[in-house]
Simulated assay, not measured.
Amino acid sequence: MFRLTAKPALSLAYFAYFGVLGIFVPYFGLFLDGRGYQSAQIGLLLALVTATRIVGPALWGTLADRTANPLGIMRFGAGIAIVAWLSSLVDFGFWPLLLGFAVFSFFWTAILPQLEVCTFHSLNDDTGSYSKIRTFGSIGYIVLVMLGGWLYQRFGSEFMPGTALLFLFLLLLSLVNLPPMPPPPSKDQPKLSFAELFSSKVLWQFMAAAFLLQMSFAPFYGFFTLYSRDLGYSGTLTGLFIGLAVLAEIIAFYYAGRILQRFSFRRLLACCYGLTVIRWLMLAFVADSPWLLALSMLFHAGSFAIAHSCAMQFIQQFFPKAQRGRGQAFYAGIIYGGGGALGAYISGISWQNGLGAEQTYVLAAIAACFAAILAWCLPKQMPKAALV
């Protein structure tokens, strides 16, 4: 079978993976609203689907370590995710849809943590090269966000299931064509017990900050397209707003390696989280101005791209090489799973079908503010587990 070389194959995998998210994340709320669900139901569905990401990454990370076959785990997860996604093509009601998306989300979690580990192995832990390959994920996201805005305006919210399905197949195809990855670290490499790793105050402080930040993103991921519609913006303009955020993200990812080398980890992370506070307050109070809303979208460069690059660097340096797979899984489960689920549930209650939009984004800003304080209190130097 034809095989791409490592960098093009990894770039295509990121493009397809985040292309699916470019349809799913911004337009899922509109899709559910189009099916007639209330904001509390949308929040519950988002929370339960996101909650599968708490246990999923740890399970898949353990299987990948024991089988020494992360590619097989990723391919299996993508295949079952496609089958589960088929439940969205026909409207069978809320509970079947909830079950279908819960299964989809659980198997979807098998992909990204292992993809991140394989990428760092292939690049010999070069953060700068990683950021450039990760940029293709942002490109996939922005392409689908822009395309989605046009499709929504032309065909309505039911465009989402079929369009995402096409990119799910592209993802599976890219994973099938990934070349063999470097062998996993040998068993005789130094390891620390997980009790030792997780007794670190620095690790839990970092995780708490990232958890709060991810909570703060929940109303943006779950309700921004509905919010934009309620403010009178067209589907195309909404796509442009999101596309502007991802364009800023792409540029930030491209230069992330240089930025991380130049600035203190602690100050950089606290600055990114502080920008997020301003971003959510702008959404709460000045989103009716298209120019100010567009300006707030540029903050995505810091609040997501640079913050994510900092987090990946933390995981790579804190965890011993033989345990980075589980470290990535732990981060994905606790932060994206737990933080995303709790944030989605709170947002669903606070949103009140749009009447509570302002207070919801204020709550998000408060969560981001506490995250920034915790980040500022981290050590000045990037820690290693053996030293903490």
Rank of each mutant, 00 (worst) to 15 (best):
V55P: 10
L292Y: 07
K321Y: 10
G222R: 01
T119D: 02
L298D: 01
L59A: 11
L112C: 08
M74D: 00
I139P: 12
I250F: 06
F101R: 03
A9V: 07
L21C: 12
L374R: 01
I133G: 01
G137V: 00
S350Y: 09
A218V: 01
A305C: 06
L46N: 09
M382V: 14
T135M: 15
I139M: 03
K321P: 13
L269V: 10
P8N: 02
T360E: 04
Y233E: 02
F28Y: 14
A245K: 12
S186V: 14
A245R: 05
F107P: 03
D33P: 00
L4T: 10
F198E: 12
L247Q: 02
L175W: 03
R262Q: 15
G77P: 03
Q41T: 09
M207Q: 10
V246P: 10
I349D: 06
L244D: 05
L97A: 13
L166T: 14
A294E: 04
S228G: 13
L170C: 11
R279N: 05
F31C: 07
C271A: 13
A209F: 03
C271H: 11
L244N: 10
L295G: 12
C271R: 11
T225C: 09
E196I: 11
L374P: 01
Q323W: 01
N124K: 13
F206N: 05
F104D: 03
A329M: 11
L269I: 13
A68T: 09
A47D: 09
P96M: 07
F15D: 01
P320G: 05
S264A: 06
T135Q: 08
I111Q: 02
L21H: 00
A195F: 07
G340C: 10
Q323I: 14
V388D: 14
F263W: 10
L293F: 10
M1E: 14
G77D: 07
V49Y: 10
M181R: 08
V176L: 14
D65T: 07
V25Y: 12
P383F: 02
L165Y: 04
F211G: 12
L48C: 14
A386T: 15
I142G: 13
M146H: 08
K201W: 05
P70Y: 03
E116I: 07
A287D: 07
Q352I: 14
L260P: 04
M160F: 06
A9I: 02
G128S: 15
G56P: 13
W376P: 01
G36S: 08
F220A: 15
M215W: 02
G239V: 03
H308Q: 02
D33M: 09
F101D: 00
Q214G: 04
M215Y: 03
Q323K: 02
I250Q: 10
L293M: 08
K201P: 04
G239H: 08
G79H: 11
L63D: 09
R3P: 08
A368P: 01
D188I: 09
A386C: 10
A81N: 04
L89R: 12
I251R: 12
I278Q: 01
N177C: 15
C369K: 06
G22A: 00
F198W: 08
L240T: 11
A364K: 01
L237A: 09
L212I: 00
V145I: 08
C310M: 08
Q352G: 11
L168N: 00
F285K: 04
A270W: 00
S199R: 11
